[in-house]
Amino acid sequence: MKKSNQNIQVVENYFNAFQQGKIDQVLDSFHDDCLIVSVKDENRPKKQLHGTYKTKSEAQQFIANIVDLFDTKKFEVERIVAQNNIVFANGSFVHEVKATGKMFVSDWVQLSVIADGKIKEYRFYEDSAAFVKASAV
């Protein structure tokens, strides 16, 4: 149980750093050899948010894409639970899409696999249809 609690702390630290705008700490949460899947597991153009990112250098692009796309109005973590090195979190958010000024409102679920005290695998799911709608000009 102690290891599960340590793994929950890794994810909590990630969320706290993001909410405090500490981007270097956010990036440091990721393992050097990480895999990030944002909504769909497929290749993506560099500036596209949804898709697959591999390695810590691409994790930096993932974070930049979020910061470039959204002005976060609300981000709530409802629960974080772990079993061994698997951590699930869920909540809700309200982002203003910078390009359109429209609100993107969604519930979300995140699965993280922790290795060496870092996020090795990160899968984030949100209402992608709401994102498309809020991004439409």
Score class of each variant (00 low, 15 high):
22 K>N: 15
23 I>V: 14
23 I>Q: 10
23 I>C: 03
27 L>Q: 04
27 L>Y: 06
28 D>P: 03
28 D>R: 09
30 F>W: 01
31 H>V: 04
31 H>G: 04
32 D>M: 07
33 D>S: 12
34 C>A: 07
36 I>Q: 02
36 I>F: 04
37 V>N: 03
38 S>C: 08
38 S>A: 14
39 V>R: 08
39 V>S: 12
41 D>H: 07
41 D>N: 13
42 E>F: 00
42 E>V: 00
43 N>P: 10
43 N>E: 15
43 N>S: 11
44 R>N: 12
45 P>Q: 15
46 K>N: 12
47 K>L: 10
50 H>R: 09
51 G>T: 04
51 G>D: 05
51 G>I: 02
52 T>M: 11
52 T>W: 06
53 Y>C: 00
53 Y>W: 04
53 Y>S: 00
53 Y>K: 03
55 T>P: 01
55 T>H: 12
56 K>D: 03
56 K>H: 12
57 S>V: 13
57 S>T: 15
58 E>M: 11
58 E>L: 05
60 Q>Y: 14
61 Q>L: 14
61 Q>T: 14
62 F>Y: 15
62 F>H: 04
66 I>A: 10
66 I>M: 14
68 D>E: 15
68 D>M: 07
71 D>G: 02
71 D>S: 13
72 T>Y: 14
73 K>G: 07
73 K>L: 14
74 K>V: 11
74 K>Y: 05
75 F>D: 09
75 F>V: 05
76 E>C: 07
77 V>L: 11
77 V>M: 06
79 R>H: 15
81 V>A: 06
82 A>H: 04
83 Q>Y: 10
84 N>P: 04
85 N>M: 12
85 N>S: 14
86 I>K: 05
87 V>Y: 01
88 F>R: 00
89 A>I: 05
90 N>R: 10
90 N>L: 13
90 N>V: 08
90 N>Q: 13
90 N>D: 13
92 S>G: 09
92 S>V: 02
92 S>T: 10
93 F>N: 08
93 F>A: 07
93 F>Y: 13
94 V>Q: 12
96 E>S: 10
96 E>Y: 00
98 K>P: 02
99 A>R: 14
100 T>Y: 06
101 G>A: 06
103 M>H: 11
103 M>P: 00
104 F>N: 09
104 F>A: 09
104 F>K: 11
107 D>A: 10
107 D>F: 03
108 W>C: 06
109 V>G: 08
109 V>W: 09
110 Q>E: 14
113 V>M: 06
114 I>W: 01
115 A>M: 08
116 D>I: 03
117 G>Q: 08
119 I>Y: 02
120 K>D: 05
120 K>I: 08
120 K>G: 06
121 E>F: 04
121 E>G: 02
121 E>L: 03
121 E>W: 02
122 Y>H: 15
122 Y>R: 04
124 F>W: 14
125 Y>C: 07
126 E>N: 02
127 D>S: 04
128 S>L: 03
128 S>Q: 12
128 S>A: 11
128 S>V: 08
130 A>F: 03
